[in-house]
Design a protein around this nucleic acid. Structure first.
Lengths: 261, 261
DNA sequence: GACTAAGTTTCAAATAATGGAACCAAACGG
DNA sequence: CCGTTTGGTTCCATTATTTGAAACTTAGTC
């Protein structure tokens, strides 16, 4: 059990609790958490107290339920601004969405999952947090595979071990083996497809955003449907997409803070 | 003044560090943090390690700088969804923006500050995290005063003690006394104005969102400029604004989770 | 090559976390 | 109406973790 259990110290445990609350998806009572938690009553209780007192959790006195606190929203604003590609990539994403007339996603890797940090829809107006902050599987999304393909072997293996390999559709790459083969192909090609691997009818073409050092900073994708488009049509845009990724990478390289201070 | 100093345990301290990083507004080096921190070198170092390992901070190996990690963005998404009024209030906010043709803000109170959780601009499209998650002063914004006016005496005093009372404009209420008087007036009136107290030329009319129990859940405001509108014009919309607040409150009261599980 | 600044590791002492058990309160059942 | 269960909170002696001064290691300067 030593393999993964090393939640570093008290702080790690407290953050675990935060995740536990988060994963429920709705306000939870103390006892619900207690069942799922590895901690004894008193310990869990104190964690919840502390986190609530700190504003990381919100406690509804009437119903006796915990949910994630708004302090997180405030912190996330800063996180999004200063350590995601989103603010910097914004104009490029907008252009790409306008040019292709399709939805564009910007994502980064977080704990083996794909974390969407921005989204631009040519037609509809943007939906706020309901989009940024969402997570998705890495092994069956265009952006996920694009990032994995250019990560270090160690990082890839670590990520693979965290995938569920759930078979969402008939096209889902549902084994580490198939995924590794696909990643090799992507590495040579330079961009990735989602061939209805996550949702039937949904396809996309994605490119990694790479720092000069080769480090994967994120990925972006142009998404469409089989009804409206096709893989061939999307591939025609591949250069545009990879170019966009390159531009963002360049911008990131320059910007990384102009020595404020 | 011991009233506030007790950062609860190790977890509290670690979260302090998170705030410290956040407050810099740009990636920081270890030594910059060390200066500002009350913790000795080794202690701070371990906190940073832990937080980084946990994904709450991101460490840039090249530059040796820390910034807030993307894990926060993911958590915030859940927080926003499940414990802010935003998702639920969305349609009402949109309507209000359309009806008034002005910018509408939705805010909640967080640690004595105003935290904006949504924004709707009749004209321009929404900007994601760049808007939600922003914070502002409570004592000189419409939403801030609207919320304070209906909070318990204890909570108000706690909040007041956290205000800076910086004199942004000639109209800023820059003392606790002036603020308290204003709050009393707001309480009788039922809504609040921002009379260019935060920014010259910017005015707004705000209403609190109150639970049936009387608890303040948040506030919303319609903002305009002296060039385009006037306090009198805004006051004409006051009923519309308070009605909107009431509707949101009602909706919140019903919704608070339809017994999922 | 000596000197300095910045970051990292060590380790005994100090402190804070732990969790079994007792306690309390409200809802339940007979 | 009282005994019982369920759900939540507090105690406190034990135990494990955090603490932080100091030693150490780079990496950069003169």
């Amino acid at each position: 059990m030593g393999s993964e259990g090393h939640s570093d110290g008290t702080v790690g445990k407290a953050l675990d609790v935060l995740d536990m609350v988060s994963s429920h998806g709705h306000p939870v009572r103390f006892s619900d958490l207690l069942e799922k938690s590895p901690y004894p009553k008193a310990t869990l209780y104190r964690f919840l107290q502390t986190l609530t007192h700190q504003g990381m959790l919100a406690y509804d006195t009437d119903r006796g339920t915990y949910s994630l606190g708004v302090r997180l929203v405030r912190l996330a604003h800063t996180a999004w601004t200063q350590s995601s590609l989103a603010p910097l990539a914004r104009p490029f994403i907008s252009d790409l969405a306008a040019q292709t007339g399709e939805t564009v996603h910007l994502a980064q890797m977080d704990q083996g999952q794909v974390l969407y940090v921005d989204k631009r829809n040519a037609a509809k107006p943007v939906e706020m947090f309901s989009q940024a902050g969402k997570v998705g599987p890495a092994y069956c999304t265009g952006v996920g595979k694009a990032m994995l393909a250019f990560m270090s072997d160690d990082a890839v293996e670590a990520a693979i071990s965290r995938q569920s390999f759930h078979r969402f559709t008939d096209h889902t790459l549902d084994t580490p083996g198939k995924l590794r083969a696909e990643l090799a192909a992507i590495r040579t090609l330079g961009y990735a497809f989602d061939r209805e691997e996550h949702e039937p009818g949904i396809i996309c073409c994605a490119a990694p955003i790479l720092a000069r050092s080769g480090k994967v900073m994120g990925a972006l994708s142009v998404t469409s449907t089989t009804a409206r488009s096709s893989l061939a049509t999307l591939e025609a845009e591949a250069t545009r997409i990879t170019d966009c990724a390159t531009q963002i990478a360049a911008e990131a390289e320059n910007w990384r803070f102009p020595d404020q201070n």
